[in-house]
Write a protein that binds this DNA or RNA. Sequence first.
RNA 1: GGAUGGGUAUGCCUAGCGGCGAGGGCAGCGGACUGUAAAUCCGUCACAAAGAAACACCGCAGGUUCGAGUCCUGCCCCAUCCA
Length: 375
Amino acid sequence: MFRLLKREGRAKRGEFQTVHGVIQTPVFMNVGTVAAIKGAVSTQDLEEIRTQVELSNTYHLHVRPGDKIIKQLGGLHRFMSWDRPILTDSGGFQVFSLAGLRKIKEEGVYFNSHIDGRKIFMGPEESMQIQSNLASTIAMAFDECPSARADRAYVKNSVERTTRWLARCKNEMQRLNGLEDTINRQQLLFAINQGAVYPDIRIEHAKVISEMELDGYAVGGLAVGETHEEMYHILEETIPFLPKDKPVYLMGVGTPANILESVERGVDFFDCVYPTRNGRHGHLYTNHGKINLFNAKYELDSRPIEEGCCCPACRRYSRAYIRHLLKAKEMLGMRLCVLHNLYFYNTMMEEIRAALDAGEFAAYKKQKLQNMSQN
RNA sequence: GGAUGGGUAUGCCUAGCGGCGAGGGCAGCGGACUGUAAAUCCGUCACAAAGAAACACCGCAGGUUCGAGUCCUGCCCCAUCCA
């Protein structure tokens, strides 16, 4: 399933086989929480900017339009017209991000819908059933993502519950994959390591879940308030205790620099809202650092966002024009910015893979970081 | 010429109905955002300034009052209507 092609230190170049095609790793998954990449991005756009995997969310799609409706329509792939891999997050992150709207119990989590306030219960079994209905390529285990500021006792408790939840997820997923009317009967399941910034809890949890034989292993609960150094330290401490023959997914991360540092520490999968959200907010990634197109200094700038960039925005439009679109709140402005940023991320991942293939990742990383810090 | 309604800070719009050192919105300028409750949020937006000390033309000029953006008088503009 996961084939290791090359190693450089802890960094890995691999291929992950799925029923929806092969994923070349390291990979950045493009985030489309509600089965849409915000910013009016179409499937055709994603093909053009060479997206490999799209990410959607269990909680959001359960609330609207409803996973049963998506199942009736043939699953998420058919629904959104995307035939390549899709990873669905389990709703675990919403336990964290919707903190004001939920209550955690052993059986699962009681949410109040952020759309209409109605009560929703989601536990490990429900999350698996929803993800099975969505028929994503990869399902994520239902976890709790504790805050970086949570104290040790809370985190220990929470992680132990997440482990019990993982066992339930695995059983339920096996059951669902065995059912006749399941759309994707080869749906994969990734476990999620937690433990906040406590290395011993992380390591202990990594050991326990490694023995449970999942298809991949995520590191969750990072980039939620701790420093970059703490995050890198946790990755260094934890990843060695995850299975060597399974992909490692760092959830929700991150900046281009975060990705380069994390690839070096053994991460294979990434996802982050930065390229899409920052794009919508006019913040653009370039090889010379990040620029904010809303700034007055770009008013008369007739250059593309980045010289030499082949994305749909840079091939035709100037910074001044895109700035105007953003200021005029024209949708095209956001769209072009989101496409540029996703293209930047997807292209950087291609460069990373090429560098790993060539055994030159260390040099590539150093050069890329140096370039990007110029601004 | 008459009637009515208005003129509020750096651009525009607006709250205000005797305690205002004047509230809000837009525009402008800047920032934040890491498994997306986010095309969102925050700051700034007269001058000066951490001081019981400084201090704005609320169209203009007077007046009433302890106190006026608010009330009164006159004037100047703007809008609409009528001659």
